[in-house]
């Protein structure tokens, strides 16, 4: 069963062309010049029910525009799409009952009120029966551990607390398909992890299809089974995450802050480590996980040097995408 299908989806915007500076502005005001910008070019998508798909691409690649067309917010310039059986831009309201959306940069929570009030409004917007709404709300409050924040105005919540409330709010009406646009943007590692767990749990327990855009490789690695990469508006890659993991996410960057300064010659030589850089007490190196484990690398340091701090990072999404572009 398909949750989402798009064929030849295209969106073009008319953009004013303007030269730099006041002169450019004046010329543009007197004789405006327009050009057509293709934000999304002829893309085909297929997402099965219950799948978790990452939709990646650099800034301006057309990710958000695609999501907006698939949720009925924008009308496409051409192409067709069905999302849980509806054409988004023609049957927007019917579709909205069946999908959930979380836009990391656009909050649906009322800024001056506690999340509980927004939940109440969302219950009404989706016409949930009162007893069902109360039961569902309690379930999400428990799962998302929202109890302590429910009566605090949203403006006083931390970004992580707010995002947990946002996702819970978008799940209240039990959407079949959840669109997440940068859900972990600006969050710390611990909160990101918790949010990923919660989304994964919803996917497993309710078979919610997840369509996610993110700049965080961790989101993709931990949540998704498939990766779609878009570039210059066109679909560049459609691969299982396993392959991306094997080929691209096989590298981690380790940063170690030692108790005392060390010279590069004193560092342990572990196979699989590359691009080692030493700056004062800080050592930064890349590990190829196909050749050495993180534990193996760290064991070379533990016991020989005092370690004050340690971070293990995925390669930045831009690097992953660059790698993919390089392959194509």
């Amino acid at each position: 069963m398909e949750a989402l299908r798009a064929r030849g989806l295209t969106k073009a915007f008319r953009v004013k062309r303007k030269d730099q500076g006041l002169g450019g502005s004046l010329r543009s005001w007197l004789r405006p010049e327009w050009e057509e910008k293709i934000a999304v070019a002829n893309i085909d998508l297929d997402v099965g029910r219950g799948e978790t798909v990452a939709f990646l691409g650099p800034n301006g690649a057309g990710k958000s525009t695609t999501i907006k067309m698939l949720t009925g917010i924008l009308h496409p310039s051409s192409g067709e799409a069905t999302v849980v059986g509806f054409t988004p831009w023609r049957e927007r309201a019917k579709l909205a009952y069946r999908i959930g959306t979380v836009f990391g940069q656009k909050s649906q929570l009322w800024y001056h009120l506690p999340p509980l009030d927004t939940f109440e409004l969302i219950g009404r917007i989706y016409e949930m029966k009162r007893d069902d709404y109360a039961k569902r709300r309690e379930d999400l409050i428990e799962r998302f551990e929202l109890g302590p924040y429910l009566r605090t105005p949203v403006r006083k919540l931390s970004l992580g607390e707010r995002m947990r409330c946002e996702i819970a709010a978008s799940l209240l009406h039990r959407p079949e398909l959840l669109f997440l646009d940068e859900p972990t943007i600006g969050l710390d590692v611990v909160v990101k992890q918790r949010i990923r767990e919660l989304i994964r749990e919803r996917n497993r327990s309710e078979e919610t299809t997840v369509f996610l855009t993110s700049h965080d490789a961790g989101d993709v690695e931990e949540l998704c089974s498939r990766v779609l990469v878009i570039h210059h508006g066109g679909l560049l890659l459609d691969e299982p995450v396993e392959r991306i993991k094997r080929d691209v996410l096989s590298r981690k960057t380790i940063t170690i802050t030692l108790a005392a300064e060390v010279s590069p010659e004193e560092l342990p030589c572990v196979q699989g480590t590359e691009n080692v850089a030493v700056a004062g007490r800080q050592v930064r190196l890349e590990v190829d996980l196909r050749r050495a484990g993180v534990e193996e690398v760290l064991s070379g340091f533990i016991g020989r040097f005092g370690i004050e701090d340690l971070t293990v990072e995925d390669p930045p999404m831009e690097e992953i995408i660059k790698h993919i572009y390089g392959e194509r």
Binding site: K94, R98, L113, D117, L121, E127, M128, K129, H173
Partner: peptide, 22 residues
Amino acid sequence: MSTGDSGGLRAIAAFLGTCWKI
């Protein structure tokens, strides 16, 4: 489960009432 096809004036009135309360 939300009742997507029901709605009607009562649902709109309930929605508006909650909106104004909020």
